[in-house]
């Protein structure tokens, strides 16, 4: 039988909501799961989730826009967040940022055309003693140098492909 994209998404969202329950407090875990699976929280998903939880879509929208790790815009499979606060700045964040931009060919706040990488700024991630620090999805990298950037990106690319897809989504690297 044919199912539309929306029906398919609806079924998957239903499974996610069932996992966490329909209490209002389940909203953030649900949104985190949706973000992880789809790399975006779409307009449709927000309305479906709101409906299932018995709240208003604009409340879901409010939560999504509040948290930096929840996004309405599509984010790549690998979201690289470089710390921009003062300790990392003094430890040489600028060179790392330049290297990231050069290697990926995008600016901060953008996603590569192939949808693999997104580059973003993060405020302090608590690694001030080991700066410059950055996050690739859930994984922390410290004392990053421009040379290391190359290795990290290569590791990402190697873990990405048809045969490693499942693994990549679950464990990142």
């Amino acid at each position: 039988m044919l199912t539309t994209q929306q029906e398919k998404l609806m079924g998957e969202l239903k499974a996610i909501v069932e996992k966490h329950g329909t209490d209002r407090s389940a909203l953030i875990p649900i949104l985190q799961d949706v973000q992880k699976c789809y790399h975006t929280i779409s307009d449709f998903a927000m309305q479906v989730i709101a409906d299932m939880l018995g709240i208003h879509p604009v409340e879901v929208n409010s939560v999504v826009t509040f948290y930096a790790f929840l996004n309405e815009k599509y984010h790549g499979k690998f979201v690289i967040r470089l710390c921009r606060t003062i300790s990392c700045e003094m430890a040489g964040k600028a060179a790392v940022a330049r290297q990231l931009e050069n290697d990926l060919g995008i600016k901060f706040g953008e996603t590569t055309d192939d949808g693999r990488f997104t580059l973003e700024w993060a405020n302090c991630i608590g690694m001030c003693d080991q700066g410059p620090a950055m996050l690739v999805n859930d994984q922390v990298f410290t004392r990053v140098t421009p040379e290391k950037v190359h290795d990290i990106l290569q590791m990402c690319e190697q873990s990405f492909g048809p045969h490693t897809l499942q693994k990549a989504e679950e464990h990142v690297l």
Partner: peptide
């Protein structure tokens, strides 16, 4: 809108100094 009337049109979107009172999207 949300509590008294339960219509749910207006909410605060964004965070910090970028917060705006807005409708859905």
């Amino acid at each position: 809108c949300i509590d008294l009337q339960e219509v749910g049109v207006l909410e605060a979107l964004g965070r910090g100094d970028k917060t705006e009172i807005a409708t859905y999207l």
